[in-house]
């Protein structure tokens, strides 16, 4: 008799789980006017609000003094799974004559980037972040290779 009990309990469990699913989708169908996840993109370009964690492209944040927090440690370059980032470093010479490694050029290949966020997580000084831009189409592929640090920018005081 145990198998019969299992047989019928299977049927009732199936009915219960299926009706649960159907209740959820029916709820969605009834609420379809109030809650929408579709963005009518080119029409709502002015009012478009992207989620906070949207991953558009990697940018190096500069403050108002044109200073960034990148120490040139290349942790992001090592973390990148497909060679999107290339860091070229130089040596700054301090007034005391001490040499210190610093960022020269932050090269970012947008055409190779999969927006996986691993570089952001690897960065020890939170120098880079994901921007909320997504209109990346260009006519020339070379325009996708970007230099992220602004000309004349330097590392912020106190960032090690």
């Amino acid at each position: 008799m145990a198998f019969l009990k299992k047989y019928f309990s299977n049927i009732f469990q199936a009915i219960r789980s299926l009706t649960t699913g159907m209740r959820i989708t029916a709820g969605y169908a009834l609420r379809h006017g109030k809650e929408k996840i579709t963005q009518q993109y080119p029409d709502n370009k002015k009012t478009l609000v992207l989620p906070e964690r949207f991953r558009g492209e990697v940018v190096l944040t500069h403050d108002e003094n044109n200073e960034h927090a990148c120490t040139g440690c290349t942790a992001c370059e090592l973390a990148c799974p497909n060679g999107t980032i290339k860091i070229i470093t130089k040596f700054d010479v301090s007034p005391e004559g001490k040499k210190k490694k610093a960022l020269d050029t932050f090269i970012y290949h947008l055409e190779l980037c999969t927006m996986c966020n691993l570089c952001i997580e690897a960065c020890p000084t939170n120098a880079i972040r994901m921007a909320q831009t997504f209109e990346h189409s260009v006519f020339d592929r070379n325009k996708l290779t970007k230099k992220l640090n602004n000309p004349g920018s330097k590392i912020r005081e106190g960032v090690e």
Binding site: A26, Y28, A29, H32, K36, I37, T38, Q40
Partner: peptide
């Protein structure tokens, strides 16, 4: 349209 409603989408519009 039904599929769009059940997935909180708009469907063809």
């Amino acid at each position: 349209k039904v599929s769009a409603w059940m997935q909180l989408r708009l469907g063809p519009n």
